[in-house]
Design a protein around this nucleic acid. Structure first.
Lengths: 206, 206, 206, 206
DNA sequence: TGTTAACCGAGACGGTACGTCCAGTCTTCGG
DNA sequence: CCGAAGACTGGACGTACCGTCTCGGTTAACA
């Protein structure tokens, strides 16, 4: 194997590129981000960027994720408390316009090209969402959450609601709304929550 | 007054542009959509496009919304039944890859440039979401839904969950998942749903 | 013939167009002249321009010629005196930058498209040149100018020299140079001027 | 220092652009020449053209001058002979419609925009004209030409006459006319030519 | 201790698209 | 029927980026 031969890649260039990407995203948004500008800002040749990332999407992904390793919910034994704390943490994170811009950028990258989308979401919300689902599952095993609830659906609802509010430009992704969200979801997850009474219909069309 | 003077704008050109935009979005996605191509496909001068829409984002918005006037939930007197029917309708709508592509495009347009985002979401999810909230509110007045629930949060959760799944490329935005979502949300909205027991914490940081 | 039917053409519009053309030529030169701008400046519809002139070239021609009806040389009986006066008159005419700009514009129109060129020069320098040649011919008949001289060549030399100096941007198309020109030409035209001694060669290549 | 850094400019692209420019000028004239077409014909990106020339005018200048390095008059010891040979050479050069088209193009470039004109004429007729004047001056020193003649005026007359005839579309810029021109000019330059008799007037107006 | 391979910055390359201007035509209303 | 207003298709403008290639010049591991 010809590994390790030749000059090794510069870690400082690597960092400079990611920093430049984050700065430009925060300043101008995804639409006005270009590899040319990233390279210029990082004082790096374009090839040095292309050598590491094949296109804008994965570069943005790494730049966003590299900056903030947002942790999943903690496990203090109380699912509801943990869930609320995690929710508040995310709301606070999004309160920084810089972070909101990064999330928007990531969404743009995913939405622009369905080809990148899957890989992107796998890396992006994948770990976060997985931790969330596992915390919920642990809660279910501890009897704090209904065992028959679709926890993936719950995760989608939580992540989706936050994402939607961020995208919609509701810059005041308020704690009150997070509380409302938390309230509805947790009530629906209570072990003593009554079942829905409507029957599931046979089939529907749009 | 500058009204009614000069040659009126061609409605056929207008339609041709929107059709071309929808076709190209479905074929190649938002990233590869260009005004040049739209104009060429519509057999129209570029200026004729720019005269009507200042940029890609609002053009895409109108093209997407013009095609499908998705109705809000019906009101049969039973909120839960209506909600489920509406949800199933959206899932079926998204099942068509063409429609999923249009929604992705719209999200891309909004996420790319925060400047456009607000106006875009206002036109896009605004009406739909408003109808949904009103249907829920009517249910609350009819005593079928908890009066103290944050119905906006519920709407965000529903719309956000669907959007998130569409973006993530889960092309099988399954009915099963929609059921799970419906299940958790409606349980949480039951008038006899027990309250959460955890106290609201003082403050949190990410 | 359906002549005089309908609304007659507005002479004020006609004048406004020519005035606007002259103004724009003097301000920005031929390159930046456009029918759009002419129509806008003249507060006239584009069609009103196209109804009268098929393209930029003849419009410019008429605009330039309409403004200044430069007369040919007078006939006081003394060719040399008349020639010098005419030359001085042209130099003074060109001294006004506005006039120089108009001549440049006309040359541009002619040089751009060989199709227009002939017709343009016929209208432009044609009459002037013809009057000049005739004055010289009269001088020849009066015995003040060599009868065997190629008077067309003389006219070309005079007009060409002035044109060349104008185009070259020698904004000080000086009287001194005009004197020098006059001097050489008139000496060459003297009836007592000695013939050239060199024999005409058989053939040459560039 | 920013010298010799980066990929060097392609000489083949350079040549291809100039060739394409010449071809298109000869085919369609200056008016229909566009950078787009030049780039397309040269199979080159537009930027590659703009990197070298800021606009049509200097590109045309270089394209024309690059092709034909027309020499000034030779010096065989006999000014009159040399002058006539040079004149014949130019006439022969202009006899090729391709060359005439190039000269017309150059004139158009200069006449269109007074901004470019000076620089253009400096590069274009500057060297040619200078050599001509110097040949005449040498002739004057050799006693073959009047010492007090305005040799610049003579040069203007010769160059201007040829230019004028070319522009006027007299495609048969005939040898006979060149002879007539040569005849008048050289007679006027004879050392034994009699002076003009008219007095110089005080002042004149157009 | 060279040689060699991969890196580095810089910047040119053929292209695509941008958003604007203009050419020349067509279509409306109103005089 | 003319005139102003202004929309129409089409083409060119000059700029920004794309992703690739080509320079001269490091920087290591291999031989």
């Amino acid at each position: 194997m010809t590994e390790g031969r030749g000059r090794p890649r510069s870690t400082s260039a690597h960092r400079a590129i990611l920093d430049a990407t984050r700065d430009l995203l925060a300043e101008n948004g995804y639409a006005r981000l270009s590899i040319d500008r990233v390279a210029a800002r990082a004082e790096v040749g374009k090839q040095t960027v292309y050598r590491r990332w094949p296109s804008k999407a994965p570069l943005v992904a790494e730049a966003v994720l590299d900056g903030s390793h947002a942790p999943g919910p903690a496990d203090t034994g109380d699912v509801h408390r943990d869930l609320r704390a995690w929710l508040y943490g995310l709301v606070a994170f999004m309160a920084d316009p810089r972070n909101a811009a990064l999330i928007r950028a990531l969404t743009a990258a995913a939405a622009e090209d369905p080809h990148d989308a899957e890989a992107l979401y796998e890396r992006l919300t994948g770990p976060q969402r997985e931790e969330l689902v596992q915390r919920l599952r642990a809660g279910a095993e501890a009897g704090q959450v209904r065992a028959d609830a679709d926890l993936d659906a719950v995760a989608d609802a939580l992540v989706g609601a936050l994402l939607y509010q961020t995208l919609a430009g509701n810059d005041s992704l308020s704690l009150r709304r997070a509380d409302g969200l938390f309230d509805v979801i947790t009530r629906g997850l209570r072990t003593d929550a009554p079942a829905a009474t409507t029957d599931r219909p046979a089939a529907e069309s749009p």
